[in-house]
Design a protein around this nucleic acid. Structure first.
Lengths: 219, 219
DNA sequence: ACACAAAGTCACCAAATAGTGATATTAAAA
DNA sequence: TTTTAATATCACTATTTGGTGACTTTGTGT
């Protein structure tokens, strides 16, 4: 009568949904829950109660394992590696076009990456909206990654005009981010182009390639 | 003894801070309060209690005059004209360069406008983060404004290549937005350029001009 | 089998927030 | 002056959210 056990046993196939009593696995479940909520509801919905419910565990454990929601979020952020596609390691060994093709491909790839990766989109938004040190660190990591590429590819080729290409790159990266963020909530049309349609996205990609081309030829 | 009046009278210079008992003026005070909070604390801080406190009036009036916080925010948005700087009326009568100078100036002006106008920045963020019809309508208004310019300047000059210039314009506008948003929270450095320094901003502006130039010459 | 430490749950408190009924205040009409 | 209707305030409730102490459950070593 007293203390009705809340653990639910599903008898079919002997599948048992029950806490695993494994600290590490439980921690991971909280981290996963953060990712899930972030992806589906955005950073504003990252509340302890919700996270605990999503993880299927008691919120008390968040305080026990991480110290609090803040630290859990920090742990989540540092557990992710969003810049894997823009890593310095990807810089090719042999470059004979000043890196034009490499840069173009990188921008185009990034354009699709941001488009498909909802979690990354939410992190971008999160970064714009919240003062959190771990998020700031994310931005710094990104800068550090980019810097490798810039120094290895752009600087040698453009010499003293390097900063001018950096400015073009900045506009491209920023544009790629915002275009994809914008279409999520604001609507699909931007400057009269449907950014969610294949046609619209092709036009944008074409423009990206064009801008890089022109920069290499006429800067 | 009972019911101590909270209205505060400041005797100096006979300046009296007191509710004006004027519905329209009070409504305006609420709208102003929304703008003030938005500018200083961002859209997430737009709570009834805070808005009422900032306006110096009771929150009950928000329900009475607007119906609720939602409607107040809607009223605020429609009371503002955020696209005043990108209005179709600004299109010059005589164009002999295909609108190149006009477009360049518009982009450069927009770059500075977003940089200085904190309220506008918050609205951009707000639009990216919230599901609110009035915000979506804002985006549509913006599109409508831009469309006038695009149709009057770009379409006639670029003909069937019009969509390709629209794509370049989309990247530029989006880049201008994101670069300025990013530096507010993420840090000043973007692609190795200090977007808040005069030098960095000059480089970006130079890149904007360069991209428009190249588009007009080589698209 | 037993003790015990770690995993996990639950009931509770405190603070913040949205919303409303009862009441007071005042400008202006009668 | 009195009445009245609109303006405005206040005190209260309900809900949501973050946080914690006391408890139960369970795997493991003795």
């Amino acid at each position: 009568m007293l203390n009705q056990q809340s653990t639910i046993y599903i008898m079919e196939k002997s599948a048992v949904i029950t806490p695993e009593r494994n600290r590490e696995k439980s921690k991971q479940r909280f981290l996963d829950a953060v990712g899930k909520i972030l992806k589906t509801k955005g950073y504003a919905a990252l509340k302890v109660n919700d996270i605990a419910a999503t993880a299927g565990l008691d919120k008390k454990l968040i305080y026990k394992y991480f110290g609090g929601t803040e630290q859990l979020l920090d742990a989540y952020i540092s557990s992710q590696d969003f810049w894997s596609n823009v890593k310095g390691e990807k810089v090719p060994q042999v470059i004979n076009d000043g890196g034009k093709n490499f840069l173009t491909d990188m921008f185009l790839e990034q354009f699709d990456y941001v488009y498909t990766n909802k979690e990354f989109q939410k992190v971008l938004l999160w970064r714009l909206s919240q003062q959190r040190n771990s998020l700031k660190k994310l931005a710094e990591d990104q800068e550090a990654n980019g810097e490798i590429i810039l120094q290895n590819i752009i600087d040698p080729f453009f010499g003293e005009k390097s900063e001018d290409l950096r400015a073009v790159a900045a506009i491209l990266v920023a544009g790629i981010y915002y275009l994809n963020l914008s279409t999520t909530y604001n609507g699909n049309i931007f400057c009269g182009l449907d950014i969610k349609s294949d046609h619209g996205r092709e036009k944008i990609k074409h423009a990206i390639s064009f801008i890089v081309d022109q920069t290499y030829e006429n800067l």
